[in-house]
Amino acid sequence: MSWAWLHRLGSPKWFYGRFKAWPKPLFCLACLCLMVAMVWGLAIAPPDYQQGNSFRIIYIHVPAAILAQSCYFAMGMAGVVYLVWQIKMSPIFLQAVAPFGALMAFIALVTGSIWGKPTWGTWWVWDARLTSVLVLLFLYMGVIAVQSALEERSLADKTAAVVSVVGLLNLPIIKYSVEWWNTLHQGATFSITEPPSMPMAMWLPLLFAVIGLYLLSAAVILWRMQTEIMRREARTQWLKQEVLSDGV
């Protein structure tokens, strides 16, 4: 099997040139999707028969929680790729994705507790789902801390990759926490194999919000990766030429 494509993707120069123009249109598309989702979800979608309007926080909570886990999965995979193939781009990706993922986990926790107060009657309980998502946030913070605390670049990259790979074990725990143990958090409303326990007028705006947030994450991560490439490759000839030809 040929791994040439992976090596090309691993070249900062090739990556920079290839994706230079992508973030802006992705960002615009993401804003459009999110705007549709927010107006539709927060104003037009019907209220829930029990929770009334407070259920609408689902349009922020669920997409943020999904993104927090997806970002971690991507980060862990980048960690594996770095540890095995030592490709230059993977720590750059890792560094770009960690703060975004941490923000998503934080938003999921905050919106969850805002919803929990009126619905459950408490801001926080130490049930398996809430605790494992808190651990996810700490893992993100650990990766960020390791990346910025260690002076030597290759050591920092390697340690962050190890942390992110080990942390992958938390993902199945988050997903199945509501099935393996008694928790206050309810089970999943959505699954691939079964129809959603929610009418279409409610889940369609949620779908827009999830797609919009994925697009936003792509835009933000690409932007951050470009910045990081410029920082790491600051001394190279190709980047000097690139910047000069941009007329900056």
């Binding site: 929770q51 619905t119 459950w120 206050l184 309810q186 999943a188 409303t189 326990s197």
Partner: peptide, 10 residues
């Protein structure tokens, strides 16, 4: 504490 289920309905 109330435990909410995963079903939502208008």
């Amino acid at each position: 504490l109330a435990k909410h289920d995963e079903k939502y309905m208008p």
